[in-house]
Write a protein that binds this DNA or RNA. Structure first.
Lengths: 249, 249
DNA sequence: GATTCGTTTTGATATAGATCAAATGGGTGG
DNA sequence: CCACCCATTTGATCTATATCAAAACGAATC
């Protein structure tokens, strides 16, 4: 199941076909419009005129490309990854509905990583120049955007901690707890879900090899903390997972 | 030489005594005022009324404290660090003149890490509420602040890559090259400098133990790539360092 | 100027996780 | 429906770095 397709760019679809206004979007409370008034959301809606389907394996943007827009994940699942000059790859994050992609490009005007869909997905394109102008008019939008960027900084701090000081099983526990919490915030089960990424991608994110990820999954299953079957995960003992993460046993 | 002093908070000094307007500050091209017009800088100056001395070992802010302001490093050197529940510590960054501290607090309203001075330093306090209001009036300030936050995201991406895929010597090479480049951008030598942090702090940042840091330094010295004497570093062969970093030999 | 404490270096040994290897099992495309 | 390609699991072995230990060195203190 090789997912890196040869297509380089997503295919824009007829905007009308996918038109779902922010105002009507069930993600509005966790996405960019969070905290905006109705009028403000309407203004944002005028900006977000392009909704795009991204097929599994396709990239929303790639490292080196000129930065033009940020993207809100409307549905589906993405990974972002950076690549060293000699081709080693680091997954820097996984993104799900309501989360924002592409903020890495603002600083230098070009993207520093790739954003690749791990399943067929939909994104809302938010042209950055216009977004900046709008957030200049709408203080609450500006405020919220700053929060979104700040939270991304804090998230990455957490990953640095994970990579810097935690052991293999602690890392996997942290990863599962984080997924659980984010899925839960979106109305899904906190204890039962399907992973969208491979063991190798999990490993890359957590700074370990796929075999080590697999062994940690097996260990958790042996200890009756989770039940795993391929991509299906059922957390049987959330507290045990939290203890592994927190107490660093 | 224990630097964690018992004082919890920096001592505000008479603002007049330290008054150096952004307009006159030699950091204005790399700090927040970068790209602002004279008039805009004057507006920013009205905001930055508190300049504070921070003594070595003192914290500008600590994890858990309420977020009220961001801080520009005017002189000196800082580390930021996050701590796990069981007390393990991860240095998440080192900051020097012109760089901004505290952006981690915007998202959740409280800081997620400590910012500690590694030498006697000075910072400019920028009350966030007022800054947000001003950046709302001054588009170029807003634009620049977004860039600063985005660059922080990209920097952390780089650290994730470092921690995730690189080997000990590659990490140290990356670290030295980064320091070199930042010092150079501030008018200091790119090849000769004094480290402000201990081997242990370097190790924490790079996800390795202080002994491993020391061994990597010794190896570089043996290979005539650098000359080290305690905190003094002289890079003899920048290209060799770049090759270690880039080619991942 | 001696003392002390913390930092750094270096050596010896241990180990978590990487690497190598092989078997199993799903999903996908023909 | 079959065949093939990946993904995953599990075992055996290896290795980069951690850990343990001790000596040397410097900077601050009395």
């Amino acid at each position: 199941m090789k997912i890196e397709s040869s297509r380089q760019r997503p295919i824009p679809v007829d905007p009308g076909a996918l038109k779902t206004a922010c105002a009507d979007c069930n993600l509005r409370e966790i996405c960019l419009p969070a905290g905006l008034s109705h009028d403000d959301i309407d203004q944002l809606d005028e900006l977000v005129y392009t909704r795009i389907k991204v097929r599994r394996g396709d990239a929303v943007f790639r490292a080196g490309e000129t930065f033009t827009a940020i993207y809100a994940v409307r549905s589906g699942f993405f990974k972002t990854r950076a690549t060293t000059q000699d081709g080693r790859e680091q997954v820097t994050g996984f993104s799900m509905a309501g989360e924002i992609l592409g903020m890495d490009g603002i600083g230098l005007g070009s993207h520093s990583c790739d954003a690749v869909a791990l399943e067929d997905s939909e994104i809302c394109t938010i042209p950055y120049a216009q977004f900046e102008a709008l957030s200049h008019q709408v203080p609450s939008l500006q405020r919220h955007f700053h929060k979104v960027m700040s939270r991304e900084i804090v998230r990455e701090n957490g990953v640095m901690m994970l990579l810097g000081v935690m052991r293999a099983e602690e890392r996997l526990a942290a990863f599962l707890l984080n997924l659980s919490q984010r899925l839960n915030a979106r109305g899904y089960s906190a204890v039962e879900f399907h992973l969208r990424m491979t063991r190798e991608e999990i490993g890359s994110y957590l700074g370990m090899k796929l075999e080590t990820v697999s062994r940690a999954f097996s260990k958790f299953q042996t200890d009756n903390i989770i039940k795993v079957d391929q991509k299906y995960v059922h957390i049987l003992d959330l507290d045990a997972l939290r203890k592994i993460y927190a107490h660093h046993t």
